[in-house]
């Protein structure tokens, strides 16, 4: 799907609970840099995400993907440059009142002292989104979409990694987000569960046109669900294009990243075989 046709077809986000439509939101990252002391993590990163698009950010571990996502979620303040969501600064509480933004954390970040049900009900209760019956219906619907309704009364510590991920996505869904951010949604999952999560992300986009930004180093997830993919290496955005553009790229850094070769004859592997190193 071209960017223009995507924009035309996904200008509205459909509420998964009420069917009501809201404007799908866009994201703009301009010259974003972030340093922690002397360590420069993001270097002049710029891109924009169109309404209703699934934008995937890929890159090796330590390339700054999660830090970038935290800036888009408004959890970190840039050293220079800026991030806007629908023209608003996401780090301000007033902006979050106007644009509903949800982040699926890599480790789930579920509230350990609350049951799964209460984890999901917290947002609508605090924002007074209906009476308790309406909230119950909304929470159970979200749990059903993610096939975890049988775990409603369990606590996060009683769930497997995959279940936690699904509950975390369900919790994000209850917020009726216009922008959904995923941090490594398939990490620590077996391939079957990884495929299930990919399906869920694609379904949320196709059914409800939620603008999604996915940070991952999972090649198959990225190429399956993305409208566009950005490659981040050592804090710099080195490539931006469709999944097709990415697979056809001749840039050796991208080729090496997407098709890693393990040379078992390499001296560093030989070294492991010596008795002293075992």
């Amino acid at each position: 799907m071209s960017a223009e046709s995507l924009e035309a077809s996904c200008s509205k986000t459909r509420n998964p609970f009420t069917g009501a439509e809201a404007d799908a939101v866009s994201v703009k990252v301009e010259g974003l840099s972030k340093s922690f002391g002397d360590l420069s993590v993001l270097k002049n990163v710029s891109f924009d995400v169109k309404p209703g698009e699934i934008f995937v950010i890929m890159g090796p571990s330590g390339s700054g993907k999660s830090v970038l996502l935290r800036h888009i979620a408004g959890l970190d303040i840039p050293t220079s440059g800026k991030v806007t969501v629908e023209g608003l600064d996401p780090s301000l509480a007033e902006s979050r009142d106007r644009v509903r933004l949800a982040l699926v954390f890599q480790a789930g970040a579920l509230f350990n002292s609350l049951s799964v049900y209460d984890n999901l009900a917290l947002y609508p209760r605090e924002h007074r989104s209906g009476d308790e019956n309406a909230i119950r219906a909304r929470v159970m619907h979200a749990l059903k979409i993610l096939s975890v309704e049988q775990s409603a009364q369990q606590f996060p510590s009683e769930l497997s990694g995959g279940m936690k991920k699904r509950v975390s996505i369900a919790r994000a869904l209850v917020m009726e987000p216009q922008l959904l951010l995923y941090d490594e949604p398939t990490s620590e999952l077996d391939p079957v569960m990884g495929a299930t999560i990919s399906e869920i992300i694609a379904t949320l986009k196709n059914e409800y046109s939620v603008t999604s930004i996915v940070v991952t180093h999972d090649r198959s997830l990225a190429l399956t669900i993305a409208n566009r993919v950005g490659i981040l290496m050592a804090g710099k955005l080195i490539s931006l294009g469709s999944p097709d553009d990415l697979t056809k790229s001749k840039d050796p850094r991208i080729v090496d990243f997407l098709n890693p070769k393990i040379d078992i004859e390499h001296p560093r592997f030989k070294k492991l075989e010596t008795k002293d190193n075992l």
């Binding site: 954390f105 917290l122 924002h127």
Partner: peptide
């Protein structure tokens, strides 16, 4: 364990 960050994104 990022529970406070989760609250922030929920605007709570």
């Amino acid at each position: 364990y990022q529970e406070i960050d989760a609250l922030t994104t929920m605007n709570i």
